[in-house]
Design a protein around this nucleic acid. Structure first.
Length: 272
DNA sequence: AAATCTCCCTGTAGGC
DNA sequence: TGCCTACAGGGAGATT
């Protein structure tokens, strides 16, 4: 399940294969993703050169000559590069060819999306326009978050996962960052002290940075473009460890559901 | 305005 | 062994 570190790993992986390459063919095997892929997309893309491979939150942005491709990997999306054409298999949905080289999108659960934005200024796209700052940028500061928390009584974990407040923090890293910051995930945003806010911001940045270095977290679905797993999984303290002892204090970790998401915490280390 | 709920999808795991 | 159900989750959009 790609979160920001996984998406960044994929972006860096495809970059050398895509950058300044000419799109020679596009094959779509399955149009029905989160939003339907327009049937005209191949016609739009073929003949354009890739001028940039960027990322905004969990969107990979392929900047072409006449606009931008927005690519979201959803839960189970995988982008891989092959040096020659090969038959598509079940759950392979899109192939983009650069001559012999092939960029293939596979997505078992089809929560991903592939959208075309005509013209410059992709940041004006409705899906990007209201996104919060990048978590690893200076804009995501404790001052910024603390100001937002004044008017929020939702659980801090829900707030961290709100892309309009900060992008790229999904369920795994929200759980892990709050454990590392020793803040209870159910604590109301406006109840966090300034010191707690500073620590939450610090830990979000630290954990995302470490995960990027390790190539992302592999649970079931994530692979980098070579098809290799990430190595962050062994660094997980709470995610997926319900009813197991806390690695710091041996207390049994508890789970609650928040917005339908599994939320695991240590009742001893993370005080409400 | 903010918070919560619903839905999209399919492979996997657990119960019987 | 095989069938059935619950569950996993990003996030937009609807609803409260």
């Amino acid at each position: 399940m790609p979160e920001l570190p996984e998406v960044e790993t994929v972006r860096c992986g495809i970059l050398p294969h895509c950058y300044q390459k000419l799109i020679t063919d596009v094959k779509i095997y399955q149009h029905q993703l989160r939003w339907p892929i327009p049937v005209t997309l191949p016609k739009i893309l073929v003949g354009q050169c890739i001028l940039g491979v960027e990322r905004r939150g969990k969107y990979i942005l392929l900047q072409l000559e006449r606009g931008t491709l927005l690519w979201h990997l959803g839960m189970s999306g995988v982008l891989r590069v092959f040096e020659q054409a090969l038959p598509s298999q079940k759950h392979d949905h899109v192939d983009i060819f650069f001559g012999e080289t092939l960029l293939r999108y596979r997505d078992v659960r089809r929560f991903g999306a592939l959208l075309w934005h005509e013209g410059p200024d992709v940041s004006a796209h409705p899906l990007l326009a209201s996104l919060g700052p990048e978590p690893l940028s200076e804009a995501f500061s404790s001052d910024y978050l603390y100001a937002i928390l004044r008017s929020r009584q939702a659980p801090i974990k829900t707030i961290l996962m709100n892309a309009n407040i900060v992008v790229g923090v999904g369920n795994i890293y929200a759980n892990e960052a709050l454990f590392a910051a020793k803040v209870h995930p159910l604590k109301s945003g406006n109840k966090l002290t300034r010191a707690e806010t500073i620590e939450v911001v610090r830990q979000v940045k630290a954990i995302l940075t470490q995960a990027i270095i390790l190539g992302g977290t592999t649970l079931k679905d994530f692979q980098n473009i070579q098809g290799k797993p990430g190595y962050f999984r062994q660094a997980l303290f709470v995610y997926g460890r319900k009813n197991q002892p806390c690695l710091l204090c041996q207390e049994i970790l508890l789970e609650v559901r928040l917005q339908g998401r599994s939320t695991v915490f240590c009742p001893h280390c993370q005080k409400a």
